[in-house]
Write a protein that binds this DNA or RNA. Structure first.
Lengths: 231, 231
DNA sequence: TCTTAATCGTGAAATTAAGCACGTTAAAAA
DNA sequence: TTTTTAACGTGCTTAATTTCACGATTAAGA
Protein backbone atom coordinates (compact mmCIF):
# COMPACT_ATOMS: atom_id res chain seq x y z
CA UNK A 1 0.00 0.00 0.00
CA UNK A 2 1.33 3.47 -0.87
CA UNK A 3 1.82 5.65 2.15
CA UNK A 4 2.15 9.37 1.36
CA UNK A 5 4.21 10.62 4.27
CA UNK A 6 3.89 14.23 3.27
CA UNK A 7 1.43 16.21 1.27
CA UNK A 8 3.36 17.35 -1.77
CA UNK A 9 2.95 21.03 -2.43
CA UNK A 10 5.36 20.95 -5.28
CA UNK A 11 4.30 19.41 -8.58
CA UNK A 12 5.74 15.90 -8.82
CA UNK A 13 2.49 14.15 -8.10
CA UNK A 14 -0.95 14.30 -6.61
CA UNK A 15 -3.59 16.97 -6.25
CA UNK A 16 -2.80 20.62 -6.77
CA UNK A 17 -2.25 21.33 -3.07
CA UNK A 18 -2.00 24.61 -1.27
CA UNK A 19 -0.29 27.53 -2.95
CA UNK A 20 2.99 28.42 -1.29
CA UNK A 21 2.54 31.79 0.46
CA UNK A 22 4.34 34.75 -1.04
CA UNK A 23 6.39 35.51 2.11
CA UNK A 24 7.74 31.97 2.02
CA UNK A 25 8.71 32.25 -1.65
CA UNK A 26 10.39 35.58 -1.03
CA UNK A 27 12.61 34.00 1.62
CA UNK A 28 13.70 31.12 -0.60
CA UNK A 29 16.39 33.03 -2.53
CA UNK A 30 17.94 34.06 0.76
CA UNK A 31 18.18 30.47 1.91
CA UNK A 32 19.64 29.54 -1.43
CA UNK A 33 22.31 32.22 -1.23
CA UNK A 34 23.36 31.17 2.26
CA UNK A 35 23.31 27.48 1.33
CA UNK A 36 25.56 28.06 -1.67
CA UNK A 37 27.96 29.85 0.60
CA UNK A 38 27.89 26.96 3.05
CA UNK A 39 28.55 24.59 0.18
CA UNK A 40 31.65 26.49 -0.93
CA UNK A 41 32.78 26.34 2.69
CA UNK A 42 32.66 22.58 2.37
CA UNK A 43 29.70 22.01 4.65
CA UNK A 44 27.60 18.96 3.80
CA UNK A 45 24.86 19.21 6.41
CA UNK A 46 23.27 22.27 7.88
CA UNK A 47 20.66 22.77 10.57
CA UNK A 48 17.84 25.28 10.40
CA UNK A 49 19.34 26.82 13.50
CA UNK A 50 22.54 27.68 11.72
CA UNK A 51 20.98 28.59 8.40
CA UNK A 52 18.35 30.86 9.91
CA UNK A 53 20.96 32.35 12.22
CA UNK A 54 23.02 33.48 9.27
CA UNK A 55 19.99 35.22 7.80
CA UNK A 56 18.64 36.65 11.03
CA UNK A 57 15.50 34.54 10.97
CA UNK A 58 13.78 32.30 13.50
CA UNK A 59 14.83 28.65 13.08
CA UNK A 60 11.23 27.49 13.36
CA UNK A 61 10.34 29.72 10.45
CA UNK A 62 12.94 28.06 8.26
CA UNK A 63 11.70 24.63 9.24
CA UNK A 64 8.16 25.64 8.42
CA UNK A 65 9.22 27.16 5.11
CA UNK A 66 10.92 23.91 4.12
CA UNK A 67 7.71 21.96 4.54
CA UNK A 68 6.83 23.41 1.14
CA UNK A 69 9.73 21.46 -0.33
CA UNK A 70 10.15 17.83 -1.31
CA UNK A 71 12.77 17.24 1.31
CA UNK A 72 12.92 16.30 4.94
CA UNK A 73 15.57 16.87 7.56
CA UNK A 74 17.19 14.54 10.04
CA UNK A 75 17.09 15.21 13.77
CA UNK A 76 20.42 16.17 15.27
CA UNK A 77 21.91 16.63 11.79
CA UNK A 78 19.69 18.94 9.83
CA UNK A 79 19.41 19.02 6.04
CA UNK A 80 21.88 17.97 3.34
CA UNK A 81 23.20 21.19 1.83
CA UNK A 82 23.15 20.14 -1.79
CA UNK A 83 19.85 18.35 -1.42
CA UNK A 84 18.26 21.44 0.08
CA UNK A 85 19.69 23.61 -2.69
CA UNK A 86 18.25 21.30 -5.30
CA UNK A 87 14.89 21.15 -3.54
CA UNK A 88 14.60 24.93 -3.43
CA UNK A 89 15.70 25.33 -7.04
CA UNK A 90 13.19 22.74 -8.11
CA UNK A 91 10.44 24.41 -6.12
CA UNK A 92 11.14 27.76 -7.78
CA UNK A 93 11.59 26.28 -11.24
CA UNK A 94 15.21 27.41 -11.28
CA UNK A 95 16.49 23.99 -12.18
CA UNK A 96 15.73 24.44 -15.83
CA UNK A 97 16.20 27.66 -17.73
CA UNK A 98 13.31 29.56 -19.33
CA UNK A 99 13.64 32.01 -22.19
CA UNK A 100 12.57 35.60 -21.70
CA UNK A 101 12.15 38.77 -23.75
CA UNK A 102 13.19 42.13 -22.43
CA UNK A 103 11.68 45.40 -23.61
CA UNK A 104 13.47 48.70 -23.14
CA UNK A 105 17.14 49.05 -23.96
CA UNK A 106 17.72 52.04 -21.70
CA UNK A 107 20.10 51.98 -18.80
CA UNK A 108 17.98 49.68 -16.70
CA UNK A 109 17.47 47.29 -19.60
CA UNK A 110 21.19 47.23 -20.28
CA UNK A 111 21.91 46.54 -16.64
CA UNK A 112 19.52 43.62 -16.61
CA UNK A 113 21.05 42.26 -19.82
CA UNK A 114 24.48 42.60 -18.28
CA UNK A 115 23.60 40.61 -15.21
CA UNK A 116 24.94 37.12 -15.82
CA UNK A 117 23.39 35.71 -12.68
CA UNK A 118 19.93 35.27 -14.17
CA UNK A 119 21.01 31.98 -15.68
CA UNK A 120 21.27 30.59 -12.17
CA UNK A 121 17.76 31.83 -11.53
CA UNK A 122 16.28 29.96 -14.42
CA UNK A 123 16.10 32.98 -16.68
CA UNK A 124 17.68 33.42 -20.10
CA UNK A 125 17.05 36.70 -21.87
CA UNK A 126 17.10 35.75 -25.54
CA UNK A 127 16.19 39.06 -27.13
CA UNK A 128 15.72 42.71 -26.34
CA UNK A 129 13.23 45.07 -27.95
CA UNK A 130 13.01 48.82 -28.34
CA UNK A 131 11.34 51.42 -30.51
CA UNK A 132 14.38 53.66 -30.86
CA UNK A 133 15.85 53.17 -34.38
CA UNK A 134 19.24 54.12 -33.00
CA UNK A 135 19.19 51.11 -30.73
CA UNK A 136 17.54 48.58 -33.03
CA UNK A 137 20.05 46.29 -34.69
CA UNK A 138 22.71 46.82 -32.07
CA UNK A 139 23.81 44.19 -29.65
CA UNK A 140 23.98 44.61 -25.89
CA UNK A 141 26.03 42.14 -23.88
CA UNK A 142 25.59 39.74 -26.77
CA UNK A 143 21.85 40.16 -27.05
CA UNK A 144 20.26 41.56 -30.20
CA UNK A 145 17.99 44.58 -29.95
CA UNK A 146 14.98 44.12 -32.22
CA UNK A 147 12.08 46.40 -33.18
CA UNK A 148 9.21 46.22 -30.72
CA UNK A 149 6.81 45.45 -33.53
CA UNK A 150 8.33 41.99 -33.87
CA UNK A 151 7.71 41.03 -30.25
CA UNK A 152 4.33 39.35 -30.47
CA UNK A 153 5.14 37.28 -33.54
CA UNK A 154 8.50 36.13 -32.26
CA UNK A 155 7.10 35.32 -28.85
CA UNK A 156 4.59 32.97 -30.40
CA UNK A 157 7.09 31.37 -32.73
CA UNK A 158 9.74 30.89 -30.06
CA UNK A 159 7.24 29.95 -27.34
CA UNK A 160 8.71 32.47 -24.96
CA UNK A 161 6.80 32.64 -21.68
CA UNK A 162 8.35 35.51 -19.73
CA UNK A 163 8.49 39.19 -20.55
CA UNK A 164 10.48 41.86 -18.76
CA UNK A 165 9.36 45.47 -18.99
CA UNK A 166 12.19 47.95 -18.49
CA UNK A 167 10.69 50.95 -20.24
CA UNK A 168 9.61 54.33 -18.88
CA UNK A 169 6.24 54.27 -17.17
CA UNK A 170 4.48 55.91 -20.08
CA UNK A 171 5.23 53.04 -22.45
CA UNK A 172 4.64 50.18 -20.06
CA UNK A 173 0.95 49.50 -20.64
CA UNK A 174 1.39 49.42 -24.39
CA UNK A 175 4.26 46.99 -24.06
CA UNK A 176 2.27 44.84 -21.67
CA UNK A 177 -0.57 44.67 -24.20
CA UNK A 178 1.88 43.46 -26.85
CA UNK A 179 3.20 40.84 -24.49
CA UNK A 180 -0.29 39.59 -23.77
CA UNK A 181 -0.99 39.54 -27.50
CA UNK A 182 2.17 37.50 -28.02
CA UNK A 183 0.95 34.89 -25.59
CA UNK A 184 3.47 35.51 -22.82
CA UNK A 185 2.44 33.94 -19.55
CA UNK A 186 4.30 36.06 -17.03
CA UNK A 187 5.44 39.67 -16.87
CA UNK A 188 8.16 41.11 -14.68
CA UNK A 189 7.45 44.82 -14.61
CA UNK A 190 10.18 47.29 -13.68
CA UNK A 191 8.24 50.36 -14.81
CA UNK A 192 6.82 52.38 -11.94
CA UNK A 193 3.19 52.05 -12.94
CA UNK A 194 0.39 49.59 -12.37
CA UNK A 195 -0.63 47.54 -15.40
CA UNK A 196 -3.97 46.15 -16.38
CA UNK A 197 -3.46 42.60 -17.48
CA UNK A 198 -5.85 39.69 -17.94
CA UNK A 199 -5.81 37.28 -15.00
CA UNK A 200 -4.30 34.42 -16.98
CA UNK A 201 -1.04 36.36 -17.24
CA UNK A 202 1.04 36.59 -14.08
CA UNK A 203 2.50 39.97 -13.15
CA UNK A 204 5.09 40.90 -10.59
CA UNK A 205 6.08 44.50 -10.13
CA UNK A 206 9.64 45.34 -9.18
CA UNK A 207 9.47 48.80 -7.76
CA UNK A 208 12.66 50.15 -6.27
CA UNK A 209 10.82 53.04 -4.72
CA UNK A 210 9.03 50.67 -2.37
CA UNK A 211 12.21 49.67 -0.61
CA UNK A 212 13.47 53.22 -0.75
CA UNK A 213 10.27 54.36 0.96
CA UNK A 214 10.95 52.10 3.91
CA UNK A 215 14.58 53.15 4.12
CA UNK A 216 14.03 56.87 3.91
CA UNK A 217 11.05 56.99 6.22
CA UNK A 218 12.88 55.01 8.88
CA UNK A 219 15.91 57.24 8.49
CA UNK A 220 13.78 60.33 8.84
CA UNK A 221 11.95 58.95 11.86
CA UNK A 222 15.23 58.10 13.54
CA UNK A 223 16.54 61.58 12.86
CA UNK A 224 13.41 63.11 14.36
CA UNK A 225 13.81 60.94 17.43
CA UNK A 226 17.43 61.97 17.92
CA UNK A 227 16.54 65.61 17.56
CA UNK A 228 13.92 65.21 20.22
CA UNK A 229 16.18 63.42 22.67
CA UNK A 230 19.34 65.45 22.30
CA UNK A 231 19.29 68.93 20.89
CA UNK B 1 -8.84 72.66 26.83
CA UNK B 2 -6.49 71.19 24.26
CA UNK B 3 -8.13 68.40 22.34
CA UNK B 4 -5.73 66.25 20.32
CA UNK B 5 -8.06 64.89 17.68
CA UNK B 6 -5.48 62.58 16.21
CA UNK B 7 -2.36 60.91 17.46
CA UNK B 8 0.43 62.16 15.25
CA UNK B 9 2.59 59.34 13.98
CA UNK B 10 4.62 61.64 11.81
CA UNK B 11 7.21 63.94 13.36
CA UNK B 12 5.71 67.42 13.64
CA UNK B 13 5.09 67.24 17.34
CA UNK B 14 4.53 65.11 20.38
CA UNK B 15 5.80 61.77 21.55
CA UNK B 16 7.53 59.33 19.26
CA UNK B 17 4.38 57.38 18.40
CA UNK B 18 3.99 54.02 16.78
CA UNK B 19 6.29 53.07 13.94
CA UNK B 20 4.52 52.94 10.60
CA UNK B 21 4.29 49.27 9.53
CA UNK B 22 6.44 48.19 6.61
CA UNK B 23 3.49 47.05 4.46
CA UNK B 24 1.98 50.51 4.78
CA UNK B 25 5.22 52.20 3.78
CA UNK B 26 5.62 49.90 0.81
CA UNK B 27 2.21 50.94 -0.48
CA UNK B 28 2.94 54.65 -0.23
CA UNK B 29 4.92 54.95 -3.48
CA UNK B 30 2.03 53.34 -5.32
CA UNK B 31 -0.40 55.88 -3.96
CA UNK B 32 2.01 58.62 -4.91
CA UNK B 33 2.35 57.39 -8.45
CA UNK B 34 -1.41 57.20 -8.94
CA UNK B 35 -1.94 60.58 -7.31
CA UNK B 36 0.58 62.26 -9.60
CA UNK B 37 -1.25 60.77 -12.52
CA UNK B 38 -4.55 62.10 -11.21
CA UNK B 39 -2.95 65.50 -10.80
CA UNK B 40 -1.80 65.61 -14.41
CA UNK B 41 -5.35 64.67 -15.36
CA UNK B 42 -6.47 67.84 -13.62
CA UNK B 43 -8.19 66.19 -10.71
CA UNK B 44 -8.16 68.25 -7.50
CA UNK B 45 -9.93 65.86 -5.14
CA UNK B 46 -9.85 62.12 -5.01
CA UNK B 47 -11.63 59.58 -2.84
CA UNK B 48 -10.01 56.49 -1.40
CA UNK B 49 -12.54 54.52 -3.40
CA UNK B 50 -11.19 55.81 -6.67
CA UNK B 51 -7.53 55.83 -5.66
CA UNK B 52 -7.57 52.31 -4.26
CA UNK B 53 -9.60 51.14 -7.24
CA UNK B 54 -6.87 52.25 -9.61
CA UNK B 55 -4.33 50.24 -7.65
CA UNK B 56 -6.45 47.19 -7.04
CA UNK B 57 -6.62 47.72 -3.29
CA UNK B 58 -9.43 47.84 -0.76
CA UNK B 59 -10.63 51.43 -0.14
CA UNK B 60 -10.65 50.85 3.61
CA UNK B 61 -7.00 49.87 3.43
CA UNK B 62 -6.11 53.15 1.80
CA UNK B 63 -8.05 55.07 4.43
CA UNK B 64 -6.29 53.18 7.16
CA UNK B 65 -2.90 53.74 5.53
CA UNK B 66 -3.54 57.49 5.43
CA UNK B 67 -4.08 57.64 9.15
CA UNK B 68 -0.28 57.52 9.32
CA UNK B 69 -0.22 60.87 7.54
CA UNK B 70 -0.77 64.39 8.75
CA UNK B 71 -3.84 64.84 6.63
CA UNK B 72 -7.51 64.20 6.93
CA UNK B 73 -10.15 63.69 4.28
CA UNK B 74 -13.55 65.23 3.84
CA UNK B 75 -16.70 63.12 3.66
CA UNK B 76 -18.31 63.01 0.24
CA UNK B 77 -15.25 64.61 -1.34
CA UNK B 78 -12.18 62.66 -0.32
CA UNK B 79 -8.67 64.04 -0.12
CA UNK B 80 -7.07 66.99 -1.90
CA UNK B 81 -4.75 65.51 -4.50
CA UNK B 82 -1.82 67.86 -4.00
CA UNK B 83 -2.26 67.85 -0.24
CA UNK B 84 -2.16 64.09 -0.15
CA UNK B 85 0.91 64.03 -2.37
CA UNK B 86 2.66 66.45 -0.07
CA UNK B 87 1.63 64.50 3.02
CA UNK B 88 2.99 61.25 1.65
CA UNK B 89 6.22 62.87 0.46
CA UNK B 90 6.68 64.44 3.86
CA UNK B 91 6.01 61.15 5.61
CA UNK B 92 8.65 59.41 3.53
CA UNK B 93 11.12 62.24 3.75
CA UNK B 94 10.93 62.77 0.01
CA UNK B 95 10.16 66.45 0.35
CA UNK B 96 13.79 67.35 0.81
CA UNK B 97 16.63 65.72 -1.03
CA UNK B 98 19.33 63.73 0.75
CA UNK B 99 22.80 63.09 -0.61
CA UNK B 100 23.92 59.52 -1.20
CA UNK B 101 27.08 57.66 -2.19
CA UNK B 102 27.00 54.77 -4.60
CA UNK B 103 29.61 52.03 -4.65
CA UNK B 104 30.11 49.83 -7.69
CA UNK B 105 30.29 51.33 -11.16
CA UNK B 106 29.30 48.16 -12.97
CA UNK B 107 26.21 47.88 -15.09
CA UNK B 108 23.84 48.04 -12.17
CA UNK B 109 25.60 51.03 -10.67
CA UNK B 110 25.52 52.81 -14.02
CA UNK B 111 21.82 52.10 -14.35
CA UNK B 112 21.12 53.54 -10.93
CA UNK B 113 23.20 56.61 -11.74
CA UNK B 114 21.30 57.00 -14.97
CA UNK B 115 17.92 56.98 -13.32
CA UNK B 116 16.85 60.59 -13.04
CA UNK B 117 13.79 59.76 -10.98
CA UNK B 118 15.63 59.43 -7.68
CA UNK B 119 15.53 63.18 -7.23
CA UNK B 120 11.78 62.90 -6.85
CA UNK B 121 12.33 60.26 -4.23
CA UNK B 122 14.51 62.45 -2.07
CA UNK B 123 17.74 60.89 -3.24
CA UNK B 124 20.68 62.60 -4.86
CA UNK B 125 23.68 60.47 -5.73
CA UNK B 126 26.60 62.83 -5.38
CA UNK B 127 29.48 60.45 -5.99
CA UNK B 128 30.28 56.95 -7.13
CA UNK B 129 33.11 54.75 -5.92
CA UNK B 130 34.94 51.79 -7.36
CA UNK B 131 38.22 49.95 -6.98
CA UNK B 132 38.82 49.46 -10.71
CA UNK B 133 41.52 51.94 -11.81
CA UNK B 134 39.99 51.87 -15.28
CA UNK B 135 36.80 53.37 -13.93
CA UNK B 136 38.21 55.76 -11.35
CA UNK B 137 38.36 59.31 -12.63
CA UNK B 138 35.71 58.80 -15.24
CA UNK B 139 32.29 60.33 -15.10
CA UNK B 140 29.03 58.43 -15.41
CA UNK B 141 25.87 60.38 -16.18
CA UNK B 142 27.64 63.41 -14.76
CA UNK B 143 28.76 61.72 -11.57
CA UNK B 144 32.46 61.33 -10.75
CA UNK B 145 33.82 57.87 -10.02
CA UNK B 146 36.25 58.04 -7.10
CA UNK B 147 38.55 55.47 -5.49
CA UNK B 148 36.80 53.44 -2.83
CA UNK B 149 39.50 54.33 -0.32
CA UNK B 150 38.17 57.88 -0.20
CA UNK B 151 34.67 56.88 0.79
CA UNK B 152 34.86 57.03 4.58
CA UNK B 153 36.68 60.35 4.73
CA UNK B 154 34.45 62.04 2.19
CA UNK B 155 31.32 60.69 3.84
CA UNK B 156 32.29 62.30 7.11
CA UNK B 157 33.30 65.58 5.53
CA UNK B 158 30.19 65.85 3.35
CA UNK B 159 27.87 64.49 6.03
CA UNK B 160 26.40 61.97 3.63
CA UNK B 161 23.85 59.68 5.29
CA UNK B 162 22.90 57.12 2.66
CA UNK B 163 25.04 54.53 0.92
CA UNK B 164 24.08 52.37 -2.02
CA UNK B 165 25.90 49.09 -2.58
CA UNK B 166 25.86 47.96 -6.20
CA UNK B 167 28.88 45.68 -6.14
CA UNK B 168 29.18 41.92 -6.62
CA UNK B 169 28.21 39.93 -3.54
CA UNK B 170 31.82 39.15 -2.68
CA UNK B 171 32.72 42.79 -2.15
CA UNK B 172 29.55 43.87 -0.35
CA UNK B 173 30.52 43.24 3.26
CA UNK B 174 33.79 45.08 2.90
CA UNK B 175 32.02 48.04 1.35
CA UNK B 176 29.42 47.98 4.09
CA UNK B 177 32.16 48.11 6.71
CA UNK B 178 33.64 51.16 5.02
CA UNK B 179 30.24 52.81 4.98
CA UNK B 180 29.76 52.17 8.66
CA UNK B 181 33.24 53.53 9.29
CA UNK B 182 32.31 56.64 7.33
CA UNK B 183 29.35 57.27 9.57
CA UNK B 184 26.62 56.55 7.04
CA UNK B 185 23.25 56.02 8.66
CA UNK B 186 21.44 53.93 6.07
CA UNK B 187 22.49 51.38 3.47
CA UNK B 188 20.54 50.33 0.40
CA UNK B 189 22.06 47.01 -0.56
CA UNK B 190 21.65 45.66 -4.09
CA UNK B 191 24.21 42.89 -3.67
CA UNK B 192 22.67 39.46 -3.24
CA UNK B 193 24.12 38.75 0.17
CA UNK B 194 23.19 39.43 3.76
CA UNK B 195 25.32 41.99 5.54
CA UNK B 196 26.31 42.23 9.16
CA UNK B 197 25.83 45.78 10.23
CA UNK B 198 25.57 47.41 13.65
CA UNK B 199 21.98 48.15 14.68
CA UNK B 200 22.37 51.91 14.53
CA UNK B 201 22.75 51.70 10.76
CA UNK B 202 19.60 50.97 8.79
CA UNK B 203 19.78 48.39 6.01
CA UNK B 204 17.33 47.56 3.28
CA UNK B 205 18.11 44.81 0.83
CA UNK B 206 16.91 45.11 -2.73
CA UNK B 207 17.02 41.61 -4.07
CA UNK B 208 15.58 41.09 -7.53
CA UNK B 209 15.65 37.36 -7.09
CA UNK B 210 12.96 37.59 -4.44
CA UNK B 211 10.40 38.87 -6.89
CA UNK B 212 11.67 36.51 -9.54
CA UNK B 213 11.19 33.63 -7.13
CA UNK B 214 7.51 34.44 -6.77
CA UNK B 215 7.04 34.88 -10.50
CA UNK B 216 8.79 31.73 -11.59
CA UNK B 217 7.32 29.48 -8.93
CA UNK B 218 3.82 30.66 -9.75
CA UNK B 219 4.46 30.16 -13.44
CA UNK B 220 5.78 26.68 -12.85
CA UNK B 221 2.85 25.78 -10.58
CA UNK B 222 0.39 27.02 -13.19
CA UNK B 223 2.13 24.98 -15.87
CA UNK B 224 1.94 21.87 -13.71
CA UNK B 225 -1.73 22.47 -13.12
CA UNK B 226 -2.46 22.81 -16.83
CA UNK B 227 -0.55 19.67 -17.62
CA UNK B 228 -2.61 17.82 -15.06
CA UNK B 229 -5.96 19.10 -16.31
CA UNK B 230 -5.46 18.87 -20.06
CA UNK B 231 -2.79 16.67 -21.60
C1' DT C 1 24.36 -0.32 25.83
C1' DC C 2 22.59 3.76 27.95
C1' DT C 3 22.58 8.65 28.39
C1' DT C 4 22.88 13.18 26.63
C1' DA C 5 22.14 16.76 23.49
C1' DA C 6 20.81 18.81 19.22
C1' DT C 7 17.38 19.08 15.85
C1' DC C 8 13.24 17.93 13.47
C1' DG C 9 8.14 18.37 12.61
C1' DT C 10 3.97 20.31 14.11
C1' DG C 11 -0.03 21.89 16.78
C1' DA C 12 -1.22 25.86 19.61
C1' DA C 13 -0.69 30.71 20.87
C1' DA C 14 0.46 35.28 19.73
C1' DT C 15 1.06 38.82 16.69
C1' DT C 16 0.18 41.38 12.68
C1' DA C 17 -2.36 42.69 8.65
C1' DA C 18 -6.52 43.04 5.91
C1' DG C 19 -11.40 43.45 5.29
C1' DC C 20 -16.00 44.63 6.97
C1' DA C 21 -19.61 47.43 8.96
C1' DC C 22 -21.48 51.26 10.78
C1' DG C 23 -22.14 55.82 12.79
C1' DT C 24 -20.86 60.50 11.28
C1' DT C 25 -20.21 64.24 8.12
C1' DA C 26 -20.45 67.26 4.32
C1' DA C 27 -21.88 68.26 -0.40
C1' DA C 28 -25.52 68.22 -3.65
C1' DA C 29 -30.23 67.72 -4.91
C1' DA C 30 -35.08 68.13 -3.99
C1' DT D 1 -34.63 73.77 4.33
C1' DT D 2 -34.78 68.95 4.18
C1' DT D 3 -33.38 64.76 2.05
C1' DT D 4 -30.22 61.99 -0.21
C1' DT D 5 -25.82 60.24 -1.17
C1' DA D 6 -20.88 59.40 -1.18
C1' DA D 7 -17.08 59.00 1.64
C1' DC D 8 -14.57 59.48 5.94
C1' DG D 9 -12.74 57.40 10.43
C1' DT D 10 -12.66 53.58 13.35
C1' DG D 11 -13.83 49.58 16.22
C1' DC D 12 -14.61 44.74 15.32
C1' DT D 13 -13.94 40.45 12.77
C1' DT D 14 -11.44 37.53 10.05
C1' DA D 15 -7.35 35.86 7.95
C1' DA D 16 -2.52 35.33 7.52
C1' DT D 17 2.02 35.04 9.43
C1' DT D 18 5.27 34.33 12.93
C1' DT D 19 6.75 32.54 17.26
C1' DC D 20 6.50 29.29 20.98
C1' DA D 21 6.53 24.78 22.96
C1' DC D 22 7.03 20.03 23.08
C1' DG D 23 7.19 15.14 21.88
C1' DA D 24 9.88 12.28 18.74
C1' DT D 25 14.18 11.06 16.67
C1' DT D 26 18.90 10.31 15.82
C1' DA D 27 23.91 10.90 16.37
C1' DA D 28 27.60 10.97 19.60
C1' DG D 29 29.76 10.15 23.96
C1' DA D 30 29.99 7.76 28.57
Amino acid sequence: MTSPRHVRRTPAGAAAAQAIPVPVLRRMPGYLQALRQFRTEGLEWVSCTRLAGRLGLDPALARKDFTALDITGKPKTGFPVTGLIRAIESCLGWDNVRDAFLVGAGSLGRALLGYRGFREHGLNIVAAFDTDPGKIGSSLHGTQVLPLSKLAGLARRMRVAIGIIATPAAAAQEVADLMVAGGLRAIWNFAPTSLSIPPEVLVENEDLSRTLAVLSQRLQARRALELEENG
